[in-house]
Design a protein around this nucleic acid. Structure first.
Lengths: 248, 248
DNA sequence: CGGCACATTGAAGGCCATCAACTATTGTGG
DNA sequence: CCACAATAGTTGATGGCCTTCAATGTGCCG
């Protein structure tokens, strides 16, 4: 594999792993072929920056594989993660040409990109893309509000437990399992990235991880591999309502 | 004026104060008349709850006048505000029948409501409502992410300064002025509500307000009326970039 | 092996929460 | 009309949680 920023991989949308969840999920074959005409793939390596906040961004994109983050930085360097982008998540805003956040690849990353102008024309004409985008944006807004509760009111221990529960759940759903009993997964974030997510310092993250290990709530193999012997017990520590909301 | 929860006020959409900013902003006259057929007004008094989190909510609505809040509450009573709804803002989520947050009137409030089912049918058929709703949701997501930075990384003093700046700005724009030099406005929130917005206790809010007063950054007349002699000086205290992002 | 990035652990201190007392304002009923 | 209670806000004292600064540990790769 070459080290070019831009890889021109040829993929058929029909085989795409995120076909049923991404912004194109609702498209009929006609709409899909129109999308297919304007799409191109880009790959990024761990740690690479996709765009800097304030820079021109003339595309929007879906994450195909890997994980990216959105972060804000204050003048004195304080950083807060404001988005965690998993496969099928959407980056960029139709109608805006300047990036509002730093977008960074925290793992190797492949994105399915659309130049902004053609994409905007397309959503104006194909309702299924616009509908799906609205749905996804509303989901993100809900996630952001959950995150606000975490940042504003949870203790360090609750924050760590919440993050582990979130990652465990999405990992389980990716493996087509339910988050129950014993689980294991690889953390896609460094301690510092976890701290940026949670509004903590990396030292506090490390201490709380050690504390959870001491208390038998988690086991660690290496730095990244986490084993959760009892998912319900971990959920108890998040401070969230036990009757996990059924919002339909 | 009666004290009924539900006021059947007759209003012509053409005269509506939020006509150009709300979810109906992009509607042509045909679409508007279809909206007009399914709308009704509801009024709430200060402190009244519009809906409780977890309750059935069979309408969506625009705030016509007054201010409402969205809050989340943890089992032990910790509360975090996750939305501040000003005139023209939208409440409720198409495709969801259960409220995810407590919605409360923090001032006397008038809302323009649409029963959910007809509204959903309508956005499926009139693209201008769906487009505007997407745009508004993206704006809310940006605001939520700004808010996350505040909650996760700002000091109490920066939080207070940020909140005052936000309110001052929106008050200025309501009066068709620019936020510059000397400003004055009424706080629409109690100290406790400010605390819930900022992820602080009401005592810390009170202390920081007193500190800002001591330092001459604000003057107070009564508890609620705030005078900002130098808006730029206050902005310095928010910790935000001075070159306030121009995101187009 | 040394160098580097990432992570853990320790010690000290500061910011904010907690608990508590007091003030100010408003509204109510005798 | 005043007494009184209720609500909202201020201020003080104390302590704890998390940050800060610092040293040490661990795995990986040239």
């Amino acid at each position: 594999m070459s080290h070019h920023d831009i890889e021109l991989l040829s993929h058929d949308c029909g085989d795409c792993p995120i076909r049923h969840r991404a912004v194109c999920a609702r498209c009929d074959s006609d709409e899909l072929s129109r999308l297919e005409q304007i799409k191109y793939y880009r790959s990024f390596q761990v740690g690479q920056t996709v765009v800097w906040s304030g820079d021109r961004m003339d595309f929007v994109a879906s994450v195909v594989s890997g994980i990216a983050t959105l972060t804000q930085t204050m003048e004195d360097g304080r950083r807060q993660m404001v988005g965690l982008l998993l496969p099928s998540d959407f980056v960029g805003r139709p109608g805006r040409s300047i990036a509002a956040y730093d977008v960074t690849a925290t793992t190797d990353l492949v994105m399915c990109c659309f130049r902004k102008k053609p994409f905007e024309d397309l959503i104006a004409r194909t309702p299924h893309v616009a509908q799906r985008l609205l749905e996804m944006t509303l989901d993100e807004l809900d996630a952001a509000r959950e995150w606000m509760l975490l940042l504003g009111r949870k203790t360090a221990r609750e924050k760590i437990a919440s993050l582990l529960a979130i990652i465990a759940r999405r990992d389980a759903s990716l493996k087509l399992r339910t988050a129950k009993g014993a689980l294991a997964f690889d953390l896609p974030l460094t301690r510092e990235e976890m701290a940026d997510y949670l509004g903590l310092t990396l030292e506090t993250v490390s201490r709380q991880m050690s504390a959870l290990k001491r208390d038998g709530m988690i086991q660690l193999e290496g730095k990244r591999h986490v084993i959760i012997p009892d998912f319900d017990a971990l959920t108890e520590l998040t401070g969230d309502d036990s009757d996990g909301g059924f919002l339909v």
